[in-house]
Computed example of a mutant assay.
Amino acid sequence: MKIAILDDYQSVALTYGDWASLNAEIEVFTEAFADADELVERLGGFDVLVAMRERTRFPSAVLDRLPELKLLVSTGPRNAAIDVAAANRNGVVVCGTGYLGQPTAEHTWALILAAARSLPAEFDSVRTGGWQVGVGTMLHGKTLGLVGLGRLGSSAAKIGQAFGMKTIAWSQNLTAEKATEHGVEAVSKEELFARSDVLSIHLVLSGRTRGLIGAAELALMKPDAILVNTSRGPIVDEDALLDVVRRKAIACAALDVFATEPLPADHPVRTLDNVVLTPHIGFVTREVYEIFYGDAVENIAAYQAGKPLRVME
C-alpha cells in the first residue's frame, strides 16, 4: 500500500501516530500543489491520501483522474474541500478523524490580545533595540461581538466574559433563548457590527456564509473596532476588508485565515501596519495533531481490515 500525507507544512506528521504499524510505503508532501494538474501528476500512484483539513481541494474533476485511489482520509470530522459523492462514485472511501475546538478558541484570544495591545509592533521594537511605540486598548468593559455562537463562539464568549466584556451575538439561526444560555445577548446583524468593540467570526464556511460580511457590514463598525477571523477567509469579502483596513476605518484586523492559502508572498495584506496575521494555526497544536494523525493511522488500518471507521457520507 502506498500512502501520501499531504500539506505537512511543519514536517511533523510522521512524529504523530504509529505509521510504522501500517507496513506501507509512505511519502510526505510538505508544500501545496500549484494546481490540479500537478496534484494528479504527483499523487496518481497512491492508494491512500491523508489530507490536512481543507488545504488541498478534491473536487470531482480531480477525483475522476485518480483511478488508483482507494481511501481518502481527512483530518477533522468534515471537509468541505472534498466532493464526497464524487469520491464514492469512483469507489473511494472518505474518512474523517476526531477534533478539538479549544485550541482555535484560545488562538482567537491570542489574536484579540495581540491586536488590542499592538503586540507585533512592540515585539519588533524591542527586538530591534527600541522601547514603547504604541498605546494599547483595555478590554474590560468593552463589547465583544460574535458572529456565530456555536461550540467555538460560545467558548470565545466565556473567555470574553472572564475579561469583563459584555457579549453580544448574531447568526442566521441564533435565538434569544440560545444566547441567554451562554450569558450572551442576541442582537440583529446590524446592531452586532455597530456595537462591537471586538468582532470575532465563528461560522462554518458554506453557501450561506461565503461573503456574508461585506462592505455594508464593515461600514457599520466603529473606527476603533477590531475584527478577528479564525474561521474561514471567504466568509469576509477580502476586497472590502482590505479597503476598510487601508483607510483605517477600523483599528485593526486580526486574521488567521485567508481566501487563498498559503497566503501569497506578495499579498497586499502583508504590507499593512494595522493587521495581525498568523498562518492558519488556530488548530495547530500537539494535542490536535495527535488526534488527527493517530486517528488517520487507525482509519487506514481499519480499511485494510475491511472495516472502515469514521466514514463521511
Rank of each mutant, 00 (worst) to 15 (best):
I3T: 06
A4K: 07
D7T: 13
Y9F: 15
Q10T: 14
Q10E: 15
Q10R: 13
A13N: 06
T15E: 15
G17I: 07
W19A: 09
W19V: 13
N23M: 02
V28I: 07
T30M: 09
F33P: 01
A36S: 14
D37K: 13
E38A: 13
L39G: 00
V40R: 04
L43A: 05
F46K: 07
D47S: 13
R57I: 02
T75P: 06
V84Y: 09
G91C: 12
G96C: 05
T97M: 11
L100I: 13
G101A: 12
P103N: 09
A105T: 13
A110N: 02
A115S: 12
A115V: 10
R117T: 11
L119M: 14
E122S: 13
D124P: 00
R127E: 14
T128Y: 05
T128C: 08
G130V: 12
W131A: 14
G136W: 10
G136A: 11
H140T: 15
L144W: 00
L144P: 00
L146C: 14
L149V: 04
L149H: 08
G150P: 07
G153F: 01
S155M: 14
A157M: 07
T175W: 13
E177A: 14
A179G: 11
E181A: 14
V184Y: 01
S188F: 03
A194W: 07
S196F: 09
S196Y: 05
S196D: 03
V198H: 03
L203Q: 12
L205F: 07
L205A: 11
T209E: 05
R210H: 10
R210P: 00
G211Q: 08
A216F: 00
K222E: 10
A225T: 04
I226C: 07
I226G: 01
N229G: 04
R232N: 08
R232C: 02
R232F: 04
I235V: 15
I235H: 01
E238S: 04
A240P: 04
L241G: 02
L241R: 05
D243H: 13
V245N: 02
I250L: 08
A254Q: 06
L255N: 03
L255G: 02
V257L: 03
V257W: 00
F258A: 02
A259F: 00
A259G: 01
T260F: 03
A265F: 03
P268E: 06
V269L: 13
V276L: 02
V276D: 01
T278W: 05
F283T: 12
F283W: 15
T285R: 10
F292R: 00
G294V: 09
G294P: 03
A296Q: 09
V297G: 03
N299Y: 10
N299W: 08
N299T: 08
A301L: 14
G306A: 08
G306P: 09
K307R: 15
K307S: 12
M312R: 12
